[in-house]
């Protein structure tokens, strides 16, 4: 039988992996709750341990930099990310800092690649998010990123615009992050009611000005669609207002 361990949150996953490693258990796979059982699977649902103390414990063992790698892998869209985290962590405990250069180890190579990929997407989205101002002065943005980078970019905007009300909605995962000038909260989209979804009076005007600027700033004799596409892939165009006309 294939032993599949089930978890529900990131904290829970970390607790589970720590438990497995301490007891020298090699899982066949680790999956979240939505996993659909196969014929030969043996589903193991351990008691859900959500002890948050696990984070400092792990950071003490592997350092904050490597913890961030694990976190970013968790945010990715990768199919077997849990297993990659498990083996990355296991190998780190075995080889220590050296492991980062052992690119021949598949799990390490993958973990580093994925975390970089997630970091890159988060950085791109910090630029590509477009807010619209609603009637009640709330700034509202929608995104559909490949990886779950909502948390990373929300923290970025908290530092950048601490005195505005804003929310960012991930339409792919149906989560919304809301900032109330104090802290950010993340909730499922359907549990949140907008008081208004009407745009502020000024909004169309500003968007118009921006589109005008965008069109003027490009130099006709240097036109290079391929180069632009490389830097700004089409999958993001849907929510980038200046690109709507070209979509």
């Amino acid at each position: 039988m294939n032993n599949i361990y089930i978890y529900n949150t990131f904290i829970n996953l970390l607790n589970l992996i720590e438990l497995l490693i301490n007891n020298k258990i090699k899982p066949y796979n680790i999956k979240d709750e939505s996993y659909y059982r196969n014929l030969f699977d043996n589903i193991i649902n351990l008691e859900q341990n959500n002890n948050i103390d696990i984070i400092p414990i792990i950071i003490k063992k592997i350092g904050i930099k490597n913890f961030n790698i694990i976190y970013k892998v968790f945010l990715s869209n990768e199919n077997n990310k849990e297993l990659i985290i498990y083996y990355f962590y296991l190998n780190y405990l075995k080889y220590k800092e050296k492991v980062l250069y052992m690119k021949n180890l598949k799990c390490v190579n993958k973990a580093l690649k994925i975390s970089k990929h997630v970091g890159n997407e988060a950085h791109k989205l910090k630029g590509f998010v477009r807010f619209k101002e609603l009637k009640n002065n709330v700034l509202y943005a929608e995104i559909e990123p490949t990886n779950n980078i909502l948390e990373i970019i929300s923290l970025h905007f908290k530092k950048r615009m601490p005195n505005e009300y804003w929310c960012i909605c991930d339409n792919k995962r149906n989560i919304i992050s809301i900032y109330n000038k104090e802290k950010i909260i993340f909730i499922p989209k359907d549990k949140f009611n907008f008081l208004t979804n009407e745009l502020s009076n000024n909004e169309n005007n500003i968007e118009n000005l921006w589109t005008t600027f965008y069109k003027t700033i490009g130099i006709e004799t240097r036109k290079n669609d391929r180069c632009r596409m490389n830097f700004m892939p089409k999958k993001y165009w849907k929510y980038i207002i200046e690109m709507k006309e070209e979509l």
Binding site: H123, K126, G127, F128, H156, K159, R160, M161, P162, N163, E164, Y214, I217, G218, I219, E220, R222, K223, N224, D225, R226, C227, R228, N230, F231, M232, I240, E242
Partner: peptide, 24 residues
């Protein structure tokens, strides 16, 4: 930041114009 805005040390590109140059 003492109001609105901060400078990101790495720099951020917000858009790319039709000639492929970054607009930040």
């Amino acid at each position: 930041n003492n109001g609105i805005g901060n400078a990101a040390p790495a720099g951020i590109c917000h858009s790319f114009s039709s000639d492929g140059r970054c607009i930040s």
